[in-house]
Each structure stands twice: as structure tokens, then as C-alpha cells.
Simulated assay, not measured.
Amino acid sequence: MMTMNRILAGAAVALGLATGAFADGHEKTKVGFVYVGPVGDGGWTYEHDQGRLAVEEHFGDAVETVYVESVPEGPDAERVMTQMALGGADLIFTTSFGYMDQTINVAGKFPDVKFEHATGFKQADNVSVYSARFYEGRAVQGHIAGQMTESNIIGYIASFPIPEVIRGINSAYLHAKEVNPDVEFKIVWAYTWFDPAKEAEAATVLIEQGADVILQHTDSTAPQAAAQAAGNVVTFGQASDMAEFAPFPRVSSIIDNWAPYYIARTQAVIDGTWESTSTWDGIAPGMVGIGEITDAVPAEVKASAEAMVESMRSGEYHPFTGPINKQDGSVWLSDGEVADDGTLAGMNFYVEGLTGDIPQ
């Protein structure tokens, strides 16, 4: 539930009166977080909040953190960011793609406040962007899913048709298809990041259509619960480990590890060395983690998936390595060619073999 009590007691935040100072007069660094979902979502927002808590633990009394959860992407986000800045925040992390324009707008009004926007691409002198190479984790999931499906139908619950989500679909499909040429993807667009009822309904629809593996790019554990109720349906944790559903149906997961980044960027503000940067890290630096592959996965599949993780960690393997064609059959990557970051960052097409259109 969104409440300004999450930020500061009383009306201080709206009035911008909070001092955040030590008793000896030294001012604390105040770090704010704007969340698209509740901190208890079990996925995306939960992991961002774990990063916030890591900042508190690392810096102790030198830093104060504040947050607002369940902030819709739109005008309300701009209001929340403005109130955080007025409340004395030195650094504000805005943790959803749909906050991009609002972040830029508010940053323009508060040039002395540093902003960090997750998964976006618009920068300013006081706005950095950061994201994780989730598609690396999707490659591992596709590799496992393609070998565990018996129906050859894999269901995919997609949130919004943005490049991050499209990359994930393509990566999972390519790696499932590589190990199982008969595999088919069925995609349901939920048009939400967090809505347990919608997510459960999407999972149920896909299971009824024959999917015995469910992948998700939404934030709640509702698809895990739906798969567990259905019986023999494989799932993967999204953004967080979702280990309460292990060893089955959840057989592995993508884990977003924001803590080191949040600590480093807070330290840069404290040191006065903060600069606008663009960060896109993956498995190798540890921003993307792969949750335990359980023994529900056949031993040889588990071993090959772990080998894939290590090859990405070492830089030996890139999930988008040609030959790869676009959905219309035109050549995208020739044999051995690796996708460039610019194309991946703006990806707006399916790869060959996927059916259906990307919603506009």
C-alpha cells in the first residue's frame, strides 16, 4: 500500500523539512527508492528492496534510506519523486522502465539531486541508467525448458512489449529451440508488472493450452502457485529466487542482485565522484545470478546448463551468436556474429520460429 509514512514520519516529506542530520551536525546522505510494486512481491521489487537494505547495512548511520512502494508508472511517479527531492534526498533510484520520462522531468527541476533510472535509456547530467543482462538468464532457462517439456509447448507470461521483455523471449526461445527443434512458444501479454490475479490467470490459460513449462517476466509468485496447483508444470523464479516453490515446480531462477551497484553509487555520492553513467551488467559481474538448479532437472541437463553459465561468466559465450534470422526469415546475425549492444538495447523484433506479432 502506497503511503508517505514509508518515507518519513508525519508530513515532513511533503514539506521538505526533514534534516536527516547527525546529532553532531554532520548531515547524512539520504537515498530514495521508487518502487513499481510492493516490497513483498517476491520478485522484482523485493530484490530492489534487498539492495536498499544492503545500503543501510553497509553504511550504517552515515546513510538514511527512504522508499515508496506500488507507485504507478505515470504522473503519480513524478509527484513521488518530487516529494523525495523536496524531502532532502541526495540520490534517488527509480526502479521501473515506465518511470523514465518522469525521472528526466524531475531531475531537470532538481539539478543537485542525483537520479538513477533502472532499465531505461535517457540520461542527463544528473541522471544515470542501469540494467542487467537478464537475457543471459533467459538463455539458461530456455536451455533447461526445451529439454524438460514433454508437450513441446512452453508458455511465456510477458509484461509489456519493451526491448527488455522482447530480448528475454527471443533468448529463451533460441536456446529452447537449439536443444529441442520441436518446441513451440505460446506468449500471453499481461500488460502489468505485478498483478497476481492476472498472472495466475495467464498461467492457467497457458497450461490449458498444453504448456508444461511456464516462463514469466512478471513479478509475483502467482504463476508458481498456479503451476504447483496444476501438477506436472515446470517454472522458473523471476527476478528473485522464489525458492519456496523449489525443488518443483520452480527448478531454477534468475536472481537480480542490485546491492553492489546501489552501494557503489551511494559511495560515489558520498565521495563527490558521482557521474552520469550507463551500466549494463550480467552474470560475469554478478548483477544476474542463476538460482540453484534443483535435482528435479535431469543430471545431464543440469550439467550442461551449469556449463553454459560458466561460459557466459568467462565471456566465452554470448546468447545472441549467429546464425540467427529475424521472424520474417531475413538474416540478422551471420554464422559466428555476435549481436551488438545497440541492437539488443532497442530490440523490437522476434527471431525466426516465434509466431504472432509483437503488440504495438
Rank of each mutant, 00 (worst) to 15 (best):
M2E: 12
M4K: 14
M4V: 11
L8H: 12
A11L: 11
V13S: 12
F22H: 11
H26N: 14
E27I: 05
E27H: 13
T29M: 13
F33N: 06
G37A: 15
W44G: 08
W44M: 09
T45G: 10
D49M: 05
Q50Y: 13
G51N: 06
E56H: 12
E56M: 10
E57L: 11
F59N: 10
T65V: 05
T65A: 08
V66K: 10
S70F: 09
P75A: 15
E78W: 00
E78S: 13
M81N: 07
T82L: 03
T82K: 04
Q83P: 09
G87Q: 01
G88F: 04
T94E: 05
T95C: 15
T95D: 12
T95Y: 07
G98P: 10
G98Q: 09
M100L: 14
V113I: 07
F115V: 00
F121N: 10
K122T: 08
Y130G: 01
F134A: 04
H143V: 02
I144H: 10
Q147K: 14
E150G: 14
E150L: 14
I157C: 08
A172W: 12
P181G: 02
F185A: 03
K186M: 08
I187T: 02
W189K: 01
Y191K: 10
Y191T: 03
W193Q: 04
P196I: 04
L206H: 07
I207V: 09
G210F: 15
G210V: 08
T218N: 11
P223S: 02
Q228L: 13
A239V: 12
E244F: 13
P249V: 02
A264I: 01
T277D: 13
I283W: 06
M287V: 04
I290P: 06
I293R: 01
I293G: 01
A307I: 03
V309S: 06
N325S: 14
K326M: 14
D341Y: 00
G346Y: 06
G353C: 05
